[in-house]
């Protein structure tokens, strides 16, 4: 084979593979989109990938009206949860990073152990904490409130933020931090002026990850929300699937509407997410 042709063929194969993967990934989105435009009967009686014979906006209109409040509720919950989790997680990761080398072998060991425990917290199934968590929130008088749900989500997502940010912060050259310390700069200032700006791609990656996790979280709002007006999107979307009858066109339309916000966030901030992952691939190892 001509040597000049090899890179062209190689690139073509790459793009072909990418195209196939992209199509596979787009099929569910396509199905969600078109089935929301079908009538009650057509959505049941036609294959899921066949476009509607007659487009109807009934499902989308109905879903938009009933999902408006859950979408607003989800935004009120998810935005502070994700920012607080990622930011406090970053601070925690920085603390453990400095602790791991600053003082002595003992402090390093403590850092490792404590951080392992915190990391372990990210693996605890939320269902296992159901009763104590509910009692805690009830005893604080925060049941069925925005603050209560945010607080409960923070319990799970701050460790997640710390774990993820530790991977990004550990690749920041230690000499920068040591130089600042030699100049008498305090840890908070070092974090705000040096560590945080340098780990910004990682912060945004962590932020996006937590946004998506919190947006899709089903179990915590299932238990801690007790009135329909406080319902979050993750619960509202599934409420179209009744035990004795699923409204498939409404379900598809609801799925589409509910995914628009996280999708938009990902589209606008996706490049930072990729950059963060690339930084991770470039040497991040964790605390």
């Amino acid at each position: 084979m001509d040597k000049k042709m090899r890179p062209v063929i190689k690139a073509s194969l790459h793009y072909l593979a990418l195209a196939i993967v992209s199509v596979i990934w787009l099929i569910p989105v396509y199905a969600m989109l078109i089935n929301g435009f079908k009538s009650n009967f057509e959505v049941l009686s036609t294959p899921v990938l066949v476009p509607p014979t007659k487009i109807t906006f009934e499902a989308y209109v109905s879903v938009l009206l009933s999902l408006a409040k859950p979408l607003i509720n989800s935004l009120i919950i998810v935005i502070p949860t994700s920012f607080i989790s990622a930011f406090l997680g970053a601070m925690g990761a920085y603390f453990f990073y400095t602790l791991s080398y600053s003082f002595s072998r003992a402090s390093s060991a403590i850092s490792d152990v404590l951080f392992s425990l915190i990391s372990l917290a990210t693996f605890i199934p939320q269902e296992a904490t159901l009763l104590p968590l509910t009692r805690l929130i009830v005893s604080m008088g925060l049941l069925d409130s925005y603050i209560g749900i945010i607080f409960a989500l923070l319990i799970f997502y701050i460790p997640t933020g710390a774990l993820l940010m530790s991977m990004f912060i550990s690749v920041i050259p230690r000499s920068l931090i040591e130089a600042a310390k030699m100049d008498g700069t305090g840890d908070l200032k070092i974090f705000m002026k040096i560590v945080f700006p340098l780990s910004m791609p990682g912060f945004i990656s962590t932020l996006i990850f937590i946004i998506i996790q919190a947006w899709n979280n089903f179990f915590i709002p299932l238990v801690l929300v007790t009135t329909p007006g406080m319902k979050l999107t993750s619960i509202a979307v599934l409420s179209y699937s009744g035990a004795y009858g699923t409204l498939y066109n409404d379900t598809f339309a609801a799925g589409m509407v509910a995914s628009i916000i996280p999708l938009a966030i990902f589209v606008f901030l996706g490049r930072y997410f990729i950059r963060g992952l690339m930084a991770l691939g470039g040497g991040g190892k964790g605390v």
């Binding site: 009763l131 049941l143 299932l222 238990v223 929300v225 007790t226 009135t227 599934l238 409420s239 035990a243």
Partner: peptide
């Protein structure tokens, strides 16, 4: 009357929420 619809026939999901709230002293 307000309905709080939780998917899952036979209360498969709702059961967790209902029992947790009862345990916490805030039954539906």
């Amino acid at each position: 009357m307000q309905t709080y619809s939780i998917p899952g026939a036979g209360g498969t999901n709702a059961k967790y929420a209902i029992l947790a709230l009862i345990q916490a002293g805030k039954p539906p």
